Lab assay of single mutants.
Amino acid sequence: MLEGKVKWFNSEKGFGFIEVEGQDDVFVHFSAIQGEGFKTLEEGQAVSFEIVEGNRGPQAANVTKEA
């Protein structure tokens, strides 16, 4: 699992990017966010995740919000 911070997330469109120190930003789709209820992320929020190869390159999977 990697750790990063949410760079930005558009809850209307359901996607955004996660910043990872020393690496390129990683695309995140709302469907990759773990948990119940409305799936969104806040700018600057700490998250842990895995990287998988998507249709358009690397993207986040199994995203969990850090306490």
Rank of each mutant, 00 (worst) to 15 (best):
E42T: 13
E36R: 09
D25F: 05
A32H: 08
G16L: 01
A60H: 01
V63K: 00
F27S: 02
K5Y: 07
V20L: 14
V52H: 10
K7Y: 04
E66Y: 15
G44D: 06
E66D: 14
Q45F: 07
G35C: 05
G54Q: 08
F30E: 04
T40S: 12
V63Y: 00
V26L: 09
F49I: 04
E66L: 15
A61I: 11
H29D: 03
E19N: 09
S48L: 12
N55I: 13
E66T: 15
K39R: 14
K13D: 03
G54K: 09
G54C: 04
G44W: 07
V26Q: 02
E42P: 07
K39L: 11
L2P: 04
N10G: 04
G16H: 00
V28E: 00
E36K: 09
F9E: 00
H29G: 03
I51N: 03
W8I: 04
G16S: 00
E3V: 14
E42N: 10
A61R: 09
Q23Y: 13
G54P: 03
A32Q: 09
S11Y: 14
K5T: 07
F17K: 05
F17M: 07
G14K: 03
T64C: 05
T64F: 12
A61W: 11
I51R: 07
E66C: 06
S48Y: 10
F17E: 02
A46L: 12
Q34F: 11
K65C: 04
Q59L: 07
V63C: 04
H29Q: 03
E42F: 14
E19T: 15
F27M: 03
E53I: 14
G35I: 09
E12T: 14
D25P: 08
V20K: 07
E12W: 15
T40I: 10
E42C: 07
K39F: 06
I18C: 02
F30T: 04
R56E: 08
F15N: 03
G4W: 02
S48W: 13
R56T: 09
S48G: 08
A61D: 08
D24F: 10
W8L: 04
S11R: 15
L2E: 06
K39P: 09
H29T: 04
F38S: 08
V28R: 00
E3D: 12
K13G: 05
K39C: 04
Q45N: 08
F49C: 03
D25K: 05
E53R: 11
Q45A: 11
L41G: 02
Q23V: 09
H29E: 03
Q59Y: 11
T64Y: 11
N10H: 08
V52L: 10
G37R: 06
F17I: 06
V6R: 01
S11D: 06
F27I: 03
G37A: 08
G37N: 07
M1W: 13
S11V: 13
A60S: 05
V26I: 12
V28T: 04
N55F: 15
K7W: 03
T40N: 09
Q34M: 15
G44F: 07
G54H: 08
G22E: 07
S48D: 04
E19G: 10
E19W: 14
G35M: 15
K39I: 06
T64S: 12
E36T: 11
E43R: 15
Q23M: 12
G54W: 11
E53N: 11
Q23E: 10
K65G: 09
E50M: 11
S31H: 12
K5L: 05
A60N: 01
V63P: 01
G16E: 00
T40E: 08
G14C: 03
V47S: 01
V6K: 00
F49Q: 00
G37V: 06
G35H: 10
F49G: 02
A60E: 00
E66F: 13
N62P: 02
N55Y: 15
S11Q: 13
K5Q: 06
G14L: 02
E21G: 11
G44P: 02
G35K: 06
G22Q: 09
S31F: 06
S11C: 06
S48F: 14
A32D: 15
L2T: 12
E12M: 12
N62R: 11
